[in-house]
Amino acid sequence: MQKTKGKQSILFANPPVVTGTANIGGPMEGQGLLGDYFDHLMEDNLHDLSSWEKCESYMLEQVIKTAAQKSGGDMSDIDYVFAGDLLNQLMSTHFALRSLSRPFIGLYGACSTMALSMIMGAITVDGGFANKVVGAASSHHDAAERQYRFPTELGVQRPPMAQWTVTGAGAAVIAAAGFGPRITAATIGKIVDLGVKDPNSLGPAMAPAAVDTLWQHIQDTGRQPAYYDMIFTGDLGSVGKTLVIEMMKEKGIDISDNYEDCGCMIYKEEQDAHAGASGCASSAVVFCGYIYQMMTELKLNKILLIGTGSLHSPTSYQQKESIPCIAHAVAVEI
């Protein structure tokens, strides 16, 4: 049966169900706007472990286990785990999965990993290759900062456009049957690069990729933005969000009524995160916490989550390359 639609989209024949989600955050996320929508909150960014990387692994392991339990089972029911993070060679994910001993497929989509893992999970389930899978992603502010930018204790001034990498993780269980919102459609993005080179402007750099994928989603599926109660992008921040609205307007579509960016939903103004949140965990904690809860309470019925990722590396920006970006859209409906 034909499940592809248009150039880049998928309409699932038997839409897989998101039967349970779990998320975790650090202290700053707990004090933020969505503080009430976390399964676990850590007291500090180390959680009594010996490194930030270990802390990130702990978070990922924790959310995967909790999500499996919340969906009414345990880890032994999980056929595959699709997961990723921001660190080199997916360090946190690999160490988290070491003790879970489930079949595992590592994904790197930078900050788009949550949406990507859900799409890959849904494809696997709808294809009949698995009954129950987990999609998960994590990021850790300090671990990401030391890899991509400067040591955390260095006294540097962050520009107003900079975003704050979220310390947290999210996991969603995707099953062939069960109760919960369903993944009905997806649009896989292509790499878009409009020449932004500044690693402090990741949100604006990713905005064209988000617009490209959203536009393609509309073309492929025929669903207008008004079809969805809310459209969420992953971590564009306030500047990137403005750019998306502007660029969609230029294409003749006004999305300002039902569009929000997960990066603008996590921190309060006074938390000094500047343009907003970023990192894999930005969309992961918002989807697996707030959005999922809103959907199970029927306050949101149809959403489109567009995970956005900037696929640069510390080496690429030192070599003065621009930032290749990607966005993947996944439609979840109840």
Binding site: M161, L194, S201, P204, V239, M247
Partner: peptide
């Protein structure tokens, strides 16, 4: 395309205080 985007970006870029 890059130039057009850069222009748009510059318009919404927040200025440092």
């Amino acid at each position: 395309k890059e130039e057009a985007f850069q222009q748009k970006f510059n318009q919404v870029k927040p200025k440092p205080p």
